[in-house]
């Protein structure tokens, strides 16, 4: 029952990913390791697509993952799975909005949840570093050249784009993604 499984996995993501944006990322990474529905590389592609198309990133990622796993119904079911916990929780919270807003318990809980969410996304970042900038085959001693452990072309591109995002802060991420895609083709990454 792939549909039920899709719904359940994305329901969990929607329920535990707090803070929006890339907060869904650690859960999706875990999902890829556990279910094999998509690879870490495909997940990275999904981020690229989500950053350059309209709509909330979490929803885009659920739609993309659902589609690659089980076609159009999969896209629909994964997205519904992701948003169902939100709808339920918000409909409950809306009843005692003021209390929720001023509650010291809620504040304390989020003082814990925010750094944890940051750390979880940080762990994904480390994984992306390893996947995109290190050549693990060379690391294992398959290559004689010790310096080839680092993927130099990728590192240079990464450094250039990082500098670019700091200099042109207002520029839309899609511009940098387009640049990266062109560089990828030109330099045969």
């Amino acid at each position: 029952m792939i549909y039920l499984q899709l719904f359940f996995e994305f329901f969990k993501t929607g329920l535990f990913a707090v803070g929006g944006g890339l907060a869904t990322l650690p859960f999706l990474q875990e999902m890829s390791a556990k279910t094999g529905w998509f690879t870490l590389g495909e997940l990275t592609d999904m981020i690229a697509v989500s950053e350059s198309t309209p709509g909330p990133i979490g929803v885009n990622m659920a739609t993309y993952a659902g589609f690659t796993t089980a076609g159009v119904p999969g896209a629909l079911i994964a997205t519904l799975g992701l948003i169902t916990p939100s709808i339920i929780v918000i409909l409950i919270v809306v009843g005692f909005l003021k209390k929720f807003k001023d509650s010291p318990y809620v504040k304390a809980a989020f003082d814990g949840l925010r750094p944890a969410s940051t750390a979880l996304i940080g762990a994904v970042l480390l994984g992306l570093f390893v996947a995109n900038f290190l050549d693990l085959g060379a690391w294992m001693g398959l290559s004689a050249e010790s310096l080839s452990v680092l993927k130099w072309k990728e590192l240079l591109l990464g450094a250039a784009v990082f500098a670019g995002t700091k200099i042109w802060k207002k520029l839309h991420p899609a511009v940098f993604l387009l640049f990266g895609a062109i560089m990828g083709i030109v330099f045969q990454l």
Binding site: A48, G180, G184
Partner: peptide
């Protein structure tokens, strides 16, 4: 090749998010 380039940029975008967070 295009996606190999994209993945590098995505890594940088995630890095920027983590710095902000």
């Amino acid at each position: 090749h295009a996606f190999a380039g994209l993945r590098v940029v995505v890594t940088v975008l995630v890095l920027n998010t983590v710095i902000k967070l």
